[in-house]
Amino acid sequence: MSSEKSNPIPLNPPVKSLFYRLSQFVGFLLGARFFVAILLTFALYVSTFFLFNQDENFSSFVFDFKVHGIIFCTVLTILAGGIINQFYDVEKDHVVKPFRSRIQSFLKQKYFLYIYLFLSIISLGIATFISYRVLLFFIFYQFVMWYYSHKLSRILIVNNLTFVALTLYPFFGMMVYYQTFSRKVLLMAIFLFLILLIIDIVKDTLTRKVDDVFGYITIPNFFSKKTTITIIISLIVITMLVSGKIVDKSGLTGFMAYYFAAGLFVFITCIFLLINSTRRNKFITLNILRFWVFIGIISMLLNGIYGKI
């Protein structure tokens, strides 16, 4: 009895072309960290109106085109930064993120560079129309993003600090724009800096061997496993102290007060997971902390809806 090999059904040329174009588009979205940019845009709008903007009413904020222009420039710069980071990390991503790399392979690297230049130029062009200070702000932002991807991401401790600083840089810009300097804002900035720093170090523990192979000197592949966990737990304890200080001294009420109070239990859970330091527990810790940052944005939004912070 003869057996025939079953061949996959070939795609029609139009269907094949559509699939290829769709794969290119999805590859671009992943390469540009599009979904991260959406989250940061949402966080920027929420924090700008409900935290930094203490005087304008909602209608004035809606028609403040300078603010929308700054946020739009920020989004374009973040997308461009994601692309240039992907360009420099392409070999590492083939090992760490094989599925994403496979999708990104549908779009040649030179096109990623063209899009990077296009987004950067558009961002600087819009910034020029807003003011020369905004232009200088984004020139510096784009330069440090490129230099981080090119050089700083491979330097011990500097890589973590620079990554977190770049994430918070747009929020700092909005704070300066509205001249919102207070003890409450300072403590919340320290809290966010610490939690993002912890997230970045925990993420590095999951890619320790790959980072070592490709020459990225990180805390997990420079120090011992025990020392790394001690550093992370120490940072969590400091974050808990800052969180307690915010609840005790800053006069927060409503959802934000509940957020920082409940955060103490979240951080204790993370410490217990890290004490029994398995890869699975690190992954769970990473996602708990990421989710808790998102909950903080939602808490600020709800707090703002039912009354300014």
Rank of each mutant, 00 (worst) to 15 (best):
V164Q: 09
M1H: 05
I219M: 12
Y306V: 02
H68P: 03
I155C: 06
R154F: 11
S120E: 09
S60D: 15
T205S: 10
F42R: 00
T227G: 01
I84F: 07
S149P: 06
N85Y: 01
I199E: 13
S123I: 13
A80M: 07
K110C: 01
L117M: 13
R33P: 06
Y259S: 07
F118S: 14
F260T: 00
I84Q: 10
Y45H: 09
F63S: 12
V213C: 01
I84W: 01
F138D: 12
V75M: 04
L241H: 04
L40S: 09
Y258H: 09
K151Y: 14
T207A: 10
D89F: 01
Y141M: 12
T207K: 07
L107N: 03
S6E: 11
I201Y: 07
T239G: 04
A80W: 06
I284S: 00
G215P: 02
K108Y: 02
V46G: 01
S224L: 03
R279K: 13
L44F: 05
V185A: 12
A257G: 12
L18V: 05
R290Q: 12
F52L: 11
I71H: 01
N303W: 00
F265E: 03
L161K: 03
R279N: 15
F34I: 09
F137P: 01
I121K: 01
I232V: 11
K16N: 06
L187F: 14
T227C: 02
F112N: 15
L273S: 04
Y259E: 10
L113K: 13
F49V: 08
L76T: 10
Y45I: 15
F34V: 14
L18K: 03
S123H: 07
Q54R: 15
I126D: 00
T278D: 08
I229G: 01
L29T: 14
I297L: 10
F143C: 09
V247S: 04
S153D: 12
S234Q: 08
S101R: 02
L136V: 10
L18E: 10
L274N: 05
K16P: 02
V75A: 05
G82A: 06
G254F: 00
I155E: 13
F272D: 00
N7C: 07
D200P: 00
I198S: 10
A37R: 00
Y45K: 04
G173L: 04
F118K: 01
K97S: 12
D64G: 05
A165P: 00
C73Y: 01
T180K: 11
M256A: 04
F63D: 10
K282L: 14
L113T: 09
H150W: 15
K66C: 08
V67G: 04
S277Q: 02
D212T: 03
V96R: 11
R183N: 13
S17P: 01
P10D: 09
T167G: 13
S182M: 07
L40M: 14
F34A: 14
N276Y: 08
L289P: 04
N57K: 14
L241W: 07
N287Q: 12
K249L: 15
F58P: 08
